[in-house]
Amino acid sequence: MGFKLLSKLLVYLTASIMAIASPLAFSVDSSGEYPTVSEIPVGEVRLYQIADGVWSHIATQSFDGAVYPSNGLIVRDGDELLLIDTAWGAKNTAALLAEIEKQIGLPVTRAVSTHFHDDRVGGVDVLRAAGVATYASPSTRRLAEVEGNEIPTHSLEGLSSSGDAVRFGPVELFYPGAAHSTDNLIVYVPSASVLYGGCAIYELSRTSAGNVADADLAEWPTSIERIQQHYPEAQFVIPGHGLPGGLDLLKHTTNVVKAHTNRSVVE
């Protein structure tokens, strides 16, 4: 069995187990497998329904001669939608809004960016022009300005110390501490036991640490421990890039980060 097929099978099995364990909360999309990078042309966006009122959005972007996937989250909030992270750029984010209108038909009224990198804030200006209120932590807003990236308009308070959590509509926002970046936030959907790890969490097929220019490698494993301790009931975990899975993604990420750190020390 090929690795790609095995990865998709694991996603399907995880979703099936969740649907059985929580039949009222989960209505997993039966329309197909989780979209992969090879299936999404740059400039297009796919939506994948995880649970009743919960979707991931998947886009792709060219970077350094390669094409990478990027995940975000959409959560229903009454007759409105909360968006977590842009679709990595203005063109993708405009396509995301169009796809949401086509498939869901509810307005996106608020959006949260989970850290300051372009795959999370690139497209904020498109959201703002569409009347979406954009939010991020003060740290993310400051770092985005320093980096020359787009800056969300509103500040999220109460997320300055490791372990801080605040309720934001249908989700809980959690600051686990520094990891992929010093400002990275985690998003949890309690009604569906869905954990969105953003770039602080890796997919299972990833074996290298990737972009760690703004990471705190020493603190990252401790931050992941905080996530595990705060959300032990999480059933569906979405990484910032690639295929979702279960809580095993947290341990896998820790292993990859520690291996990278150990290699760096040896070198």
Rank of each mutant, 00 (worst) to 15 (best):
M1A: 10
G2R: 03
L9M: 07
L13E: 13
A15Y: 15
A15E: 15
A15I: 06
A21K: 09
S22A: 12
P23L: 13
P23K: 12
L24N: 05
A25G: 11
F26T: 03
F26G: 12
S27V: 06
S31E: 08
Y34V: 10
S38P: 14
S38I: 09
I40V: 06
V42K: 07
G43H: 03
G43I: 06
V45A: 09
Q49S: 12
I50C: 13
I58D: 14
A59H: 05
T60H: 05
Q61H: 04
S62L: 08
G65T: 05
V67T: 07
Y68S: 14
P69M: 03
P69G: 05
S70V: 09
S70F: 03
G72I: 00
G72M: 00
I74L: 06
V75E: 01
V75M: 04
R76S: 03
G78S: 09
G78F: 03
E80Q: 07
L82V: 09
D85C: 00
T93F: 00
A94Y: 10
Q103H: 10
I104A: 08
G105T: 15
G105M: 15
T109C: 04
F116D: 06
D119L: 01
R120A: 14
V121T: 04
G122L: 15
D125W: 05
D125L: 12
R128Y: 05
A129T: 12
V132H: 01
T134V: 11
A136D: 01
A136K: 01
A136P: 01
P138A: 11
A144C: 12
E145C: 12
P152C: 14
T153L: 04
L156K: 03
E157M: 11
E157S: 08
G158Y: 08
L159G: 04
G163D: 09
G163Q: 05
D164P: 06
G169Y: 06
P170M: 11
E172K: 10
L173E: 00
P176M: 07
G177W: 00
A178R: 06
L185H: 03
I186V: 09
Y188S: 04
V189A: 10
A192S: 05
A192K: 12
G198M: 00
C199G: 05
C199R: 01
E203R: 03
R206D: 04
S208Q: 06
A209N: 02
A213Y: 04
A215Q: 11
L217Y: 15
E219G: 09
T222K: 11
I224T: 10
R226W: 08
I227N: 04
Q229H: 14
H230N: 05
E233Q: 12
F236G: 12
I238W: 06
I238R: 01
P239T: 13
P244N: 04
P244K: 09
L247S: 13
L247M: 04
L249W: 01
T253Q: 02
N255K: 15
V256S: 10
V256Y: 03
V256A: 13
V257K: 02
N262P: 09
N262A: 06
